[in-house]
Simulated scan of single mutants.
Amino acid sequence: MDTQSKLDILSRDAQYDLSCACGTKNPNEHRKRDNTGSGWLYPTTTASGGPGIVLKTLLGNRCVNDCKYCPLRTGQDFRPVALSPSEMASFFYDFQAKRPLLGLFLSSAVMGDAGGTMEMLVSTAKILRNRYHYKGYIHLKVIPGSTKESIDEALKYASALSLNIETPGEHHFSKLTDAKNYVQDILEPLKYIASQTARGSQYQRVHTSSQFIVGASNELDKEILFYTSRMYKELHVGRLYFSAYQRGLGDSSLPGEQVAAPKQAQLELFDGLPSIPLQDQGLLTREHRLYQADWLLRKYGFNFEELSFGQEGNLSLDDDPKLAWAKANIDFYPLSIKRAPKEALLRVPGLGPTYVNRIIDKRRNTPISCLEDLHLPFSTLEKARPFITM
C-alpha cells in the first residue's frame, strides 16, 4: 500500500479520538470532516479559539490494549496498518507545503508496547523539526504508561500533548480495561506532564489536554465535572474534551446501556453530515451539556459546587447548565444592565464574554435607555430578557 492508502485507513480509525476537536453550539460539529475529500483533514480550533485544519491520523492501528469501548482493541478482526516515522513526516511535510494547515495531530494504537510506540511518535516529530525544519503545530498523544524520559523527549518537539484520562476514577476505569493501570498508566503521567508544563517551567509553551469517554462505564456527569474542575485547578490542564461512547462499536459487555445500531449508520457518523442513530441522540446531547458546563468552569467564573445536577447526578438534557443555575437561583436576578459587574452579567443566560464586554464598553461610552440599545441578536436578547433590567 502507498502512504495515502494507509492514511485513508488510519485517519478513519483516528475518528475515535476527538480531543483535537471542539464542542461548540452544534454538539456534532466536531464530528464533521473537512469537505475537501481528504479524509485525514479535520476542522479544529486553536488554543486561542480560532479555526484551523489539521492532518489527523494514527501512526498504527493494531493495539495490544483491551479497552472495551474501542473497536481497535486487541482481538478484533480488521486490517492492521502502520506508517513509519519517516514515511509520516515526509508525507505531512510535502502535503502541508501544497495546502497550508494548522498542523499535525498524531496518535497511535499501542503497537507492541507503550515505550516503543511513544518512541515512534516522538521520532516523527523529531524528523519534522530537525530534517524538514518544520516550525508549525504538532500535537502528540501520549501513550498510557509512557515513561518520564519519553514524555521529556515529546516535550522537546511537540506544541501540544494530550493523554486521555478516560473515566472519573479508578472504579469506572476498571470496567473498561484489564490491561491498563489507572494510577500508573494515566494519573502519574498526567501529573508529570503538569509538573513539566507549569507556568515558569521550561515547557510552559506546550498546551495540554485530556479527554473523558462519556457513557461507557455508568459514570455520572457530577463525577466527570468534579474531576474536570480538579484537573483545571491542580493539573492546570489547558483543555478537557468529552467523547460520547459510540454504541455498537465497542464491547457489548460494557455496563452502559447497549443498543447496537446498524454498522452503516455508525460509519456515516464521521462522513460529511452526521447520521446519528436515534438511541444515541440523548448521549450526544449529554456530551454537549458537559461541554457547556466546562465553559462555565473555564470562562464564566463558576465553581463546581455551583453546577446544578438532577437527583441522579446528571446535568439536565432540557436546559443548558447556565439556564439551570439561573432557574435554581432566581433571587439573583434581575440584574441591572447599567450597574451589574462583569462577573454577574456572565451569569445571565444567553450572554457570553463577547456580549458582556460589548455591554460594559457601551455603557461606559454612551447612555443606554432601553435593552434594544445594546444591539444584541434578537435570539440572545430574548433569552436574556427575563434576567435583566434597566
Rank of each mutant, 00 (worst) to 15 (best):
I276A: 00
K263V: 11
I143T: 13
N35T: 09
Q246T: 13
S162L: 02
H30P: 00
E234I: 00
K32H: 02
S107H: 06
Q292A: 06
G313H: 12
V259P: 00
P71L: 09
L187A: 04
E305L: 06
S90E: 15
P377I: 07
A326Y: 02
D2P: 05
K32Y: 00
Q96C: 12
R364F: 12
N181V: 05
M1R: 03
K6Y: 07
F173W: 05
P353F: 02
S252P: 01
Y93N: 14
S162E: 13
L41N: 06
Y203H: 10
Y245N: 06
A109T: 07
Y137R: 01
E257Y: 03
H139T: 01
L317G: 03
C370H: 15
S84P: 03
P334G: 04
S209I: 01
Y241F: 14
R363L: 12
D8Q: 14
Y182N: 01
F173A: 02
T117P: 10
R363S: 11
Y192T: 01
E234D: 15
L315M: 08
R347A: 00
L128Q: 09
K135H: 07
G116H: 13
R358I: 02
K362M: 15
P80F: 04
S210F: 03
P71D: 13
T208W: 06
K98H: 14
A261H: 08
I276C: 04
K222T: 08
A82N: 11
P386K: 05
A194F: 06
M390R: 06
D178Q: 15
G115H: 11
S19D: 15
Q204C: 02
E188L: 08
E312F: 01
S48F: 00
S217F: 06
D113C: 03
C20R: 01
S336E: 12
S108M: 11
Q204P: 01
P349G: 01
R298M: 07
S379G: 02
K6C: 08
T285S: 14
S150V: 00
T197D: 10
E149D: 12
K299W: 04
G301K: 09
R289M: 15
D8P: 00
